[in-house]
Simulated assay, not measured.
Amino acid sequence: MAEANEQIAESAPRAARHWVVAAACVGFIAAMVGVTYASVPLYAMFCSLTGFGGATRVGATPTAAPLEREITIRFDANVSPGLPWAFAPEQREMTVKIGATSLAHYSATNRSADDTRANATYNVSPPQAGAYFVKLQCFCFEEQTLAGREKMDMPVVFYVDPAIADDPDLKTLKDITLSYTFFPAKSDKPQVRAEADGVRKPL
């Protein structure tokens, strides 16, 4: 009888410890879920500021003198299905001095007769170069609106941070690709596609 009482006495604190551990685990999981939802805008801001994951940086005019080293910037353009735009770079590539402010142009044309709004996402390749690709002005900073059949020039002002020369993984890098993709604005009504025969069909 005494032995049974001892076993019960020992199992009570053990059960209490199990409940404490279980409660702590549930609390930790709930906290992580909350952090995950809250971190989405913070993660986007982090990528923009650091270039993590191939995202470019947004910054101010460089103060350091450009380097003699040159690098080729290639330009890529894409349009998501559902957006009746033609979108392309005015130049396929340009060679610039690292640290020098440069200007490139894209153009977008609304192929439908309706006003349409869109947002551009962007990244660079290789992804490690995103931390050094700094944009000063860009159409991608704001939502863009094109009237029916309107064509718009979309400039990008940028430079490659001279700090890239000190990165051992990028010392031999010769070119960077800047890529944009336009998506329909979420609040926009369904778009229409301009057909070759002049008949516009819902997307």
Rank of each mutant, 00 (worst) to 15 (best):
A2Y: 08
A2M: 05
E3Y: 02
A4R: 12
Q7H: 13
P13Q: 05
P13I: 08
R14L: 12
A15R: 14
A16C: 05
A16L: 09
R17T: 13
W19K: 14
A24L: 15
G27D: 08
F28L: 13
F28I: 10
I29F: 14
A30T: 13
A31D: 12
M32I: 15
V33F: 12
V33D: 10
G34H: 00
G34R: 01
V35F: 08
Y37F: 06
A38H: 02
A44Y: 03
M45S: 11
M45R: 10
S48M: 04
S48H: 10
G51H: 04
F52I: 08
T56C: 12
G59F: 00
A60Y: 05
A60L: 12
T61L: 09
P62W: 05
T63W: 11
A64Y: 04
A65T: 13
R69W: 08
F75P: 07
A77I: 04
N78T: 09
V79A: 05
S80E: 11
S80N: 06
S80Q: 09
P81R: 10
P84I: 07
W85T: 00
A86M: 10
F87M: 00
A88M: 11
E90M: 13
E90Q: 15
E93T: 14
E93A: 14
G99H: 03
G99R: 03
S102V: 10
L103I: 11
L103D: 15
Y106I: 06
S107L: 13
A108M: 02
N110T: 01
R111A: 05
R111P: 01
D114V: 04
D115L: 03
D115A: 03
Y122Q: 11
P126E: 03
Q128L: 11
G130L: 04
F133N: 04
Q137M: 12
C140G: 09
C140L: 07
C140W: 10
F141E: 08
Q144E: 02
T145L: 07
T145E: 12
G148M: 04
R149I: 04
K151G: 05
M152F: 02
M152N: 06
D153H: 14
A163W: 06
A165R: 04
A165L: 05
D169I: 06
L170P: 04
L170H: 07
D175P: 00
I176G: 01
S179N: 12
S179T: 13
F183Q: 01
S187P: 03
S187I: 04
P190L: 01
P190T: 02
V192R: 00
R193E: 06
R193F: 03
E195P: 06
D197W: 01
G198E: 00
G198N: 05
R200P: 00
P202M: 07
